[in-house]
């Protein structure tokens, strides 16, 4: 099976072609580039390097968030359009799980996405005979709450992944002995994304596949706060 995998959920960009478990070509960029500009040319590059054309691909694997809203939308839009237009299988993988896949196998892995103001998107994972097991679901949280939640684990076994400088400071105060991988050293690996995708169910309804934002927009949040409720029958988008 040939898999095209890509992740643009944060500043780095990662693209890979994997065939029967072997990475044929991979491209990673840590520089701050514009994903909307580079993603398709980079997909073209890894395909060319793999001596394949897009139609040879059997499965599209995409990091579906959480992360930068614009970043995950770019990857998800390309992934769902490719799957739709070429009738290929599609799998979405948590962007946090992709980060965890690069962690230390003996650790309790806590991949993070900085959500500003001392908040983060976070999940807790552990490797079990080569496979990642999700211990705490991905969620949006204040760092204080998250660090409190992690008290049930042996703090020496904790490994935080993709911590920005601010998050690192907060973690160090609570868990000085934990391993903290800085954002600069926590790059998503598209090869590993492909590997995870192989074990996940294929998306049956490509049209309704959307990013996992894990957060309402501010406008919707405020609207619900005012006591509004979504009328179950209303469709906010209509064909006219």
């Amino acid at each position: 099976m040939k898999i095209l995998a890509f992740d643009t959920s944060n500043k780095p960009l990662a693209v890979a072609v994997v065939s029967d478990g072997n990475v044929l070509a991979t491209l990673e960029s840590t520089e701050k580039k514009t994903h909307s500009v580079t993603l398709l040319p980079d997909i073209q590059k890894v395909l060319t390097e793999s001596n394949l054309v897009i139609n040879d691909i059997d499965l599209i694997a995409v990091a579906k968030g959480p992360g930068s809203y614009t970043g995950v939308r770019i990857a998800v839009t390309v992934a769902k359009t490719l799957a739709f237009t070429l009738k290929k299988n599609l799998v979405g993988v948590s962007s946090l799980e992709v980060l965890a896949a690069d962690g230390d196998e003996s650790k309790i892995l806590v991949p993070l996405m900085d959500a500003r103001n001392d908040n983060a998107f976070a999940g807790v994972y552990q490797m079990h005979s080569g496979e990642l097991v999700n211990l705490i679901e991905d969620h949006h949280t204040s760092m204080a709450k998250l660090l409190d939640l992690l008290k049930k684990y042996d703090s020496e076994k904790l490994e935080f992944i993709n911590a920005t400088d601010n998050l690192t400071d907060l973690i160090k105060k609570e868990y000085p002995e934990a391993v903290i991988l800085n954002a600069k050293d926590s790059l998503p690996k598209a090869g590993k994304l492909a590997k995870i995708a192989e074990r996940k169910p294929v998306i049956s309804d490509v049209d309704s596949f959307v990013p996992t934002y894990l957060r309402l927009t501010q406008a919707e949040h405020d609207w619900y706060e005012k006591g509004h409720k979504k009328d179950g029958n209303i469709s906010y988008v209509e064909e006219v």
Partner: peptide, 13 residues
């Protein structure tokens, strides 16, 4: 932000 999210929901359909 709401507009962008809706576009992703609709585009392939």
């Amino acid at each position: 932000e709401v507009a962008s999210r809706h576009h992703v929901e609709e585009v392939t359909h």
